[in-house]
Amino acid sequence: MTLLSVQGLAVARGGLRTVEGVSFTLDPGQALILRGPNGIGKTTLLRAIAGLQRPVAGRIDMADDAVAYAAHADGVKGALTVAENLSFWARVFGGGGMDTALSAMDLVPLADRPAAALSAGQKRRLGLARLLVARRPLWVLDEPTVSLDTASVLRFAAMVRGHLAGGGAALIATHIDLGLDAQVLDLTAFRAKADRAARPAGFNEAFA
């Protein structure tokens, strides 16, 4: 059973295609690392898979409500405590497992602290702990390790490994080595061609 199947995907940012012809599949237990220079369209691609953006071309096949998405912004409310932040998302996603999530990201000692008092790295840990309470099979992560220290990166890698072992899958855009047994997809090869011949028929050159 395939969790995610992407075929011939093309995405655009600011009206211009960034990558095109991207195809891959993700099965349970698999992780895929996206690489590529800045501006190649990693974030745009991940947002398209998370359903936040419409792809320009291609197919994305997966079950409904399969994706847990985490990006640069953690969606953490400063006025709420760590536990309140997490339990809100747990209730929205209909999940549980607050305690596991808190301990997985070493947040137990901080649980009653208002999130406004957290450092950037601690906030990020809270944002990542949300993945565990979302209880979704496919994690779509955009630079998840930004502002994490070495110990936290190891914790996070262990969390991802646990998720994969439990039959989940992960699609991660990152530049550091997480020590995962994962395939790597370099998007540089899929950079959109600037010439017009590559466009599908009927596509008008006035609107790139």
Binding site: A50, L52, Y69, A71, H72, A73, G75, W89
Partner: peptide
């Protein structure tokens, strides 16, 4: 703060 993206997903 990104909550809206998360709510949408």
């Amino acid at each position: 703060d990104g909550s809206l993206d998360l709510l949408a997903t």
